[in-house]
Design a protein around this nucleic acid. Sequence first.
DNA 1: CGCGGTTTTGAGTTCTATCAATAATTGTGG
DNA 2: CCACAATTATTGATAGAACTCAAAACCGCG
Lengths: 204, 204
Amino acid sequence: MLFRHGEPLRALYVVKTGSVKTCAPGMNAEEQVLGFYLPGEPIGLGGIAQHCHSRTARVLETSAICEIPYLPLTQLATTLPALQRQLYHLLSRELNQQSEMLLLLGRKHAAERLATFLTDLSQRFGRRGLSATEFTLSMSRHDISNYLGLAVETISRLFSRFQADGLLQVDRKQIKILNSVALKRLSGAPVTPPPRRHRSHQQS
Amino acid sequence: MLFRHGEPLRALYVVKTGSVKTCAPGMNAEEQVLGFYLPGEPIGLGGIAQHCHSRTARVLETSAICEIPYLPLTQLATTLPALQRQLYHLLSRELNQQSEMLLLLGRKHAAERLATFLTDLSQRFGRRGLSATEFTLSMSRHDISNYLGLAVETISRLFSRFQADGLLQVDRKQIKILNSVALKRLSGAPVTPPPRRHRSHQQS
DNA sequence: CGCGGTTTTGAGTTCTATCAATAATTGTGG
DNA sequence: CCACAATTATTGATAGAACTCAAAACCGCG
């Protein structure tokens, strides 16, 4: 564990290799997964103001983490406007990512959520020079389900379905995206909004 | 409308009287409601880094809004560390509020969501010296449902149910909280986690 | 008073959670 | 290294929560 919710903030962190998840204490025992962090991504921004961590950060696998001591950073920031701006920028990026999650949790159904999750991961891997179509999930199905607000079984079923539909090739934690276009379309607004016809006896 | 998503950020705003909602463009035409702002609460923080608004802000009723020009503010902040810190603090508060919403949308069912929403409003009114038990909702059922990730009909039914259960007294937009304790308990982790028994023929 | 909009209520359907059981994988000690 | 236990993942059956469609009730307003 990198740090725990509530601890005094001694440093910020950047993932060098491996991956990290951040969690907040949920309602009933189980904590809520709030984000996954891949190489190059900064962790702990949310605690800057309170001088204590707002999340708990756990590594998902053997990882190399770069530690940025907090005090020197803020002191430097007071004299370096560019650094100051960069910190704002990172904070604000976090905020916008969370807004995306609000949209996902509030308006998307299960398949859209998983598709969004996978496309997002894909893009982030791609941005780091890694393969955008073939990667391994460092987090468990359980973590994914928690993050996406679904049941583990739903995630499992969706992986099976996506594979059956030729969107993915899934082998345990190894993912290969076969049809990124369809996946992306599925993740956002489907061109044809699910034309659900019930009351089918009322057809004209 | 106060400002629109994407516009250059000219000022931050603080609600003096009335109320405001912020929205982001959703997937299918309809935009997603991301927050409601009551008197005393600051709007527009999310855009600080990009120098442009990340949300659209719409007033919900006749309101008095205080405008804080952006440039002077940031310039002042570079020389006033206390102001700088205050800005971080507000940004970070926004972040934590959103985390709460992630929890709500990801793990709570409909009744818990509405109960959370009402207790939150109640507390915020109370903090401003207004009645915490009796207030009027400035937003439509539709806005509430959008914000909470539910259907309008569900909101309506829940208001009816809460009233039938003696939790609230609802008259159109007038709300009177009759049992704030029960409401609060409902909003978080119920003491007895919903003991749903299906397969009831298997009872011992 | 009649009209558009919002809210409420009702009926039926769908999606996803839950329960249950099995299979696959990982970890552990002999 | 293998057998066993323990976790994690998959698959199936069922139930329940919430959505959709539909229509009525209610409200504000010209």
